[in-house]
Amino acid sequence: MSTVVLLTLTGLGLAALYFLIASGLSLVFGLAGVLNFAHGLFLSVGAYATWWAAPHWGLPAAVAFGVAAAAATGALVELVLIRPLYTRHTEQVLVTVGLSLAGVALLQSLWGADARIFPRPAWAAEVTGVLGASVPVDRYLLIGAAVLVLLALLAFLRFTRYGLIIRAGVENRAMVSALGIDVRIAFTLVFAIGGALAGLAGILGGMYFSAISPGQGASLLIFAFIVVVIGGLGSVTGSAIAAVAVGLLQQFVNYYGAPGAGDVSVVVLLAAVLLTRPAGVAGKVATA
């Protein structure tokens, strides 16, 4: 029983990270049609900015700085690199591929390829007892942050004008323009939101793994991609459901099956979902 509780909470913690990365990816893809390989870079920017700032300004300010830096990176990437390519989606994907390669290399040249110890609040290192299991508090930190982000994101999409524009734009971009709305402002906005959430994921991931390295973003990114596809491109709720499914499946199979079997089972899940429902669990058709 205690193992099941620990595995569940750990799986949900992992799901929280996946969700934070995937929700931004999903919105960016749904609205702007860009499969963003540079998303892992946003994650690393957030993590490294916080790591750099923490000794100077203290952790809370450093976290805010990291999130802001990642959001700024996202907006900048959209404005400078994605926007000039208009609707040439393949080229846009290629540019993000180049950016992900160059960005990771840049981080390596600045701070080395080795992992760096990441700071975390003292209370996050503690352990609590739940139903007989000893659960590290950092799991709750991840889960709590992800739930807050999910609620905030849903409220933003539902109740604000920009949220309305983003939801409409995911359905039909051209028609949003035909209503007199500059849809490209919304593109920049989703890149900034995606960047901020990825940056937060990078920071929380750093606290969870107690270390950061330049390549960390890329390995999380692939599972986030899988979450996006299973959840449906452009759907925040879909991303949340898929993230939980993927996180739990991965943890449980990794524990009870052969090592690495959890990762394999996630990919099998993806193949099964795509073959039975090409549109994903929720959201629009994935073949666009």
């Binding site: 491109l233 795509l274 073959l275 090409p278 994935a286 073949t287």
Partner: peptide, 9 residues
């Protein structure tokens, strides 16, 4: 069996 971006994924 998939196409476009789904095939890539």
């Amino acid at each position: 069996r998939t196409s476009g971006i789904a095939f890539s994924m």
